[in-house]
């Protein structure tokens, strides 16, 4: 009796020691993470129902901040523009990266050079590359419009000078910059598909297109899921891209939620509105993520 008791106590203290060692491993990162990320996230939720300018006392505002931003024409425009931007960026980047991955999964010479070249825009600084794209898209004498005129388009789009076209310019640059990164994730997925599947299908007389539809695409579902989630989250976060290309203009035609939040915080110093807009951004991203996780139960694959 006494012996088992000491044994349990020993086991207990061993477990306790193991737990302590575990905590000691995560502590250096976790303490910083909790203070500088977790607490601010929670504080945002509090701020969204408060009225505060950062100097005077905070007062409870209830849903006033939310009412105010929904009445704000700039917020509503930013909201819809963000959805437009996210839908097209996600869909087109996904297609481009999938196509590139399939093309670069083939056994060809210089495969790595191609991959690196396509990937490079991802590591290029948005500010530096934004200056380049602004020149390329210049409406009157930029090379893209010069090219369009030379192939017979008399009235090429005004791109960043036009309220209708600016957002499309932003979407094009965004696809260009990020497709290489997602291509790599697709390539990893493609490498995990057993070659035997293709061999069997070829023996059965399946065409290239049939093999793609019946083997490649279904087998890539986990990759597509991951790419979709990351793309969605990152598109909602886009700030540097817009800032470098258009600064939200002309007018407010390319002001997205991230830019709106920045402006409310650091231009108008309206903390309540900024926090409320943040919560809206957060809820949208969360909703999209949850819907995806529901649709795709392979979440555990990633953890």
């Amino acid at each position: 009796m006494a012996q088992t008791e000491t044994a349990t106590r020993k086991a207990g203290s061993l477990k306790f020691r193991k737990a302590l060692i575990g905590y000691s491993f995560i502590a250096p990162n976790f303490i910083g993470f909790a203070i500088f990320i977790l607490i601010p996230v929670i504080f945002t939720i509090v701020l969204s129902v408060m009225d505060w300018d950062g100097f005077n006392a905070m007062t409870f505002a209830g849903i006033d901040n939310f009412r105010q931003i929904f009445r704000d024409r700039v917020f509503r425009s930013a909201f819809w523009k963000t959805l437009l931007y996210v839908v097209f960026t996600v869909a087109l980047t996904l297609l481009a990266s999938l196509g590139l991955a399939c093309a670069l999964n083939k056994n060809i010479k210089g495969r790595n050079a191609f991959r690196s070249a396509i990937f490079f825009p991802y590591v290029a600084s948005m500010i530096a590359i934004g200056a380049v794209w602004k020149q390329l898209f210049e409406a009157n004498y930029g090379p893209i419009n010069n090219f369009l005129r030379s192939i017979g388009i008399a009235n090429p789009p005004g791109w960043f000078a036009s309220t209708d076209w600016a957002i499309w310019g932003v979407i094009i640059v965004s696809i260009w910059k990020y497709m290489g990164y997602y291509m790599l994730i697709y390539l990893a997925g493609l490498q995990d598909i057993p070659v035997q599947l293709y061999e069997a299908a070829t023996l059965d007389g399946a065409s290239g297109w049939q093999r793609f539809m019946k083997i490649t695409l279904p087998m890539l579902t986990p990759s597509t899921f991951f790419v979709f989630i990351m793309l969605t989250i990152n598109s909602f976060k886009s700030f540097d891209l817009i800032y470098a290309l258009t600064q939200g203009g002309p007018g407010t035609s390319t002001t997205l939620l991230a830019n709106y939040i920045y402006n409310q915080t650091f231009v108008y110093w309206d903390y309540g509105k900024s926090a409320a807009a943040s919560i809206i951004l957060f809820v949208i991203v969360l909703a999209v993520t949850i819907v995806q996780f529901r649709g795709e139960k392979k979440f555990t694959d990633y953890l």
Binding site: P40, T44, L47, I261, A275, V285, L286
Partner: peptide, 20 residues
């Protein structure tokens, strides 16, 4: 908690960080 913050855009908690 770590995973959840990956999904949160930085702009969401940028202001509290600034105040801190």
């Amino acid at each position: 908690a770590y995973i959840a913050t990956i999904a949160i855009p930085w702009q969401v908690y940028m202001l509290p960080q600034y105040i801190m």
